[in-house]
Nucleic acid binder design. Structure first.
Length: 596
RNA sequence: GCAUCUGUAGCUCAGCUGGAUAGAGCACUGGCUUCCGAAGCCAGGUGUCGCAGGUUCGAAUCCUGUCAGGUGCACCA
């Protein structure tokens, strides 16, 4: 169904046209002065210049036209021209109620599905094998998951890909470290042609110690680093023993990563890694050479990606290192190649740390230039800022190290659990609720900030349950559910149910009108959130719904309302409210507990 | 050095495809519960929108310059 704002715009555009002005001046928007009106149209002021007339005169002309027109009469309770030339609009209660009535009776609150659903791939994991997830993985995971859910909800076909880091230097470093420790392993025996063991000779816990050690040595020791680079090259060139070991590393890591992402309520459709696209590399490189895009520069194989409009010359996109090994760029390009073959995506959205912007700019340009993706494929870089500590610097543990994600989650959960002491719940229920509330605190604290900006992690604030926080939204939803439960019991004692047959009545008071106006914005808000890939705007919206509901709630006694038609109408209104809240939270990747 | 992002209330942040008095939350003060969850609601003060110019009827928003901070600049990912 059509959005309210679109109806208003159409109405106003028609009015402008009928009065002899260009249609575009009918552009209406939400009022920025709610005390004066609900919607506004500023077109008269813009038109004043073009038509050399007084803005107020135009506004009055339009207002008069709308008032006498049939459809205008149906929509508006008020159409007012105000100096210097604003058009202030208020909707009729009947129309508003009718609109929400339809929203409630239609799937997805009446949101229209896209004519042509797009195939969208969201690349947002960034996890590396052999390394535990840490706070740096939090933002891409949370934001990406939300983008995925929102896109899917809008009616598109969406694939989330974790895109594991399982191919680069880190693998060479681990191989080197393992070689040093266990030179006798069959994996390191040259010329060995037999089968390698099925079982991995190490556990995830071993790896969690081995990788940091190797990484550290590689930074400090030149010879060690050279060894790791050589191992990387050998491994990438297909040395059997190395490949077998890396398979073990991946096999051991994935279940652990899955578990940790699941704790965050983050799920991927694809668990592909960099290693999965290696077969595409030789052909891809060969074609780039043949087509004349790739050439040797300073020993490495590169593709130029500068464009005329650049203020500064971009470094070229590196395809192969001078030692012939593949790079980050190479793998990302090959991944795009494979995605194009398998899924033919209309868009690929990368949710990764914003510091990688240059890298992706190069990859995108190279992919377009060399024809790896179609010209119309939209490649989007959604760079996220970092989560900082209260000192404004990247979040660290007290000891100054990088915090593991599972510890952070556990800390938040524990803190919430302590606060729920006084609730009448079983220990089990309280645990479960604190998990959901804690996660909401963490995720909402993150998502309510613009993705591209850094933000300060403040545990106290996020879990404070006051103000614009995840728990506050959850609380509002839980509270409504509680009322609905009570109502269901109450209704049992009455002769017949009225809720189903009762239509939504026009609002009876200020609080109810405001609530209805907010709820009526669901569709257009979702559209904006999707288009701008801006989950923080969804947070803001849910917060507005919650505020509007709480205001309404204090203004009206729902269950004791004597007019049963009114009461049934209110029940339907708050049902719509809670449905939208729960849906919205779910799109942020946040669950709503039964009680809290 | 070059590029790029950010600078809004004491703190944390919205607003930035130009519009009417720049908004929230926290913190601070006072009030509201014989009644649906007070983790709530109501009321109260706070701003050189980094600075300086410019465009415009109109600028936090667009343009230029400038200051401050962050980030990135070819064989790591």
């Amino acid at each position: 169904m059509k959005q309210i704002l679109d109806c208003i715009r159409q109405e106003m555009e028609q009015a402008f046209a009928a009065c002899g002005y260009e249609e575009k001046y009918g552009m209406a928007s939400l009022s920025n002065r709610p005390d004066l009106c609900q919607y506004q149209c500023n077109g008269a002021m813009a038109a004043a210049k073009a038509y050399k007339k007084a803005p107020l005169a135009i506004a009055e002309e339009i207002a008069a036209y709308v008032k006498q027109s049939e459809t205008g009469n149906q929509f508006f309770e008020k159409v007012e021209a105000v100096p210097p030339g604003f058009l202030n609009l208020n909707l009729k209660g009947e129309y508003l109620a009718d609109f929400l009535e339809q929203s409630q009776r239609t799937e997805k609150f009446g949101m229209e599905q896209p004519e042509k659903p797009e195939m969208i791939i969201v690349d947002y994991g960034g996890a590396n094998v052999a390394k535990p997830l840490h706070v740096g993985h939090l933002r891409p995971a949370i934001i990406g998951e939300s983008i995925k859910r929102i896109s899917r909800y809008m009616g598109h076909q969406v694939i989330g890909d974790v895109h594991l880091g399982d191919w680069g230097l880190q693998m060479g470093q681990i191989l080197t470290e393992l070689h040093h420790r266990h030179p006798d392993w069959v994996y390191f025996e040259e010329g060995y042609t037999g089968e390698y063991p099925q079982e991995a000779p190490f556990t995830i816990a071993d790896l969690e110690e081995i990788y940091p050690t190797a990484s550290k040595k590689s930074k400090e020791d030149e010879a060690y680093r050279a060894e790791a680079l050589e191992a990387t090259f050998q491994f990438q060139s297909g040395r059997r023993g190395y490949r077998a070991l890396c398979k073990h590393i991946t096999a051991v890591s994935i279940p652990d990563l899955k578990k940790n992402y699941a704790n965050l309520n983050v799920e991927f459709d694809l668990w592909k890694g960099e290693s999965d696209v290696q077969e595409h590399i030789p052909g891809m490189v060969e074609k780039m050479k043949q087509d004349g895009f790739a050439y040797i520069s300073e020993g490495a194989l590169v593709v130029d990606v500068t464009e005329e409009t650049d203020k500064k010359e971009l470094p070229p996109c590196l395809i192969l290192k001078s030692d012939g090994a593949a790079l980050y760029e190479t793998t990302d390009l090959a991944t795009l190649l494979e995605r194009e073959q398998l899924y033919h995506p209309d868009r690929v959205i990368y949710v990764v740390d914003k510091r990688q912007e240059l890298h992706f700019t190069k990859v995108f340009r190279c992919a377009k230039k060399t024809g790896i993706v179609r010209p119309e494929t939209e490649l989007t870089f959604l760079g996220n800022g970092t989560m900082n500590g209260k000192d404004g610097k990247p979040f660290k543990t007290r000891e100054g190290g990088v915090m593991r994600l599972e510890y952070l989650i556990a800390d938040v959960e524990e803190e919430v659990y302590r606060k729920m002491d006084d609730r009448e719940m079983s220990k089990e229920e309280a645990r479960d609720a604190s998990r959901q509330v804690g996660l909401a605190a963490l995720k909402y604290g993150d998502l309510s900030n613009q993705a591209s900006k850094d933000y300060v992690f403040d545990l106290e604030r996020f879990i404070s349950f006051e103000g614009n926080t995840g728990p506050y939204i959850q609380y509002t939803a839980v509270r409504i559910r509680s009322i609905l439960k009570k109502y269901a019991e109450l209704e049992k004692t009455e002769k017949e149910s009225q809720t189903e047959s009762q239509k939504l009545l026009p609002p009876s008071g200020e609080g109810e009108t405001d609530l209805m106006l907010v709820l009526a914005r669901f569709g257009s808000t979702m559209q904006t959130v999707f288009e701008e890939k801006a989950p923080h705007k969804l947070c803001q919206y849910l917060y507005e719904i919650s505020n509007a509901f709480n205001h309404f709630y204090h203004e009206n006694k729902i269950l004791t309302e004597e007019n049963t038609a009114r009461r049934a109408s209110w029940i339907r209104l708050i049902t719509l409210t809670v449905d939208m809240l729960v849906t919205g939270l779910d799109l942020l990747g946040i669950e709503t507990p039964e009680r809290m």
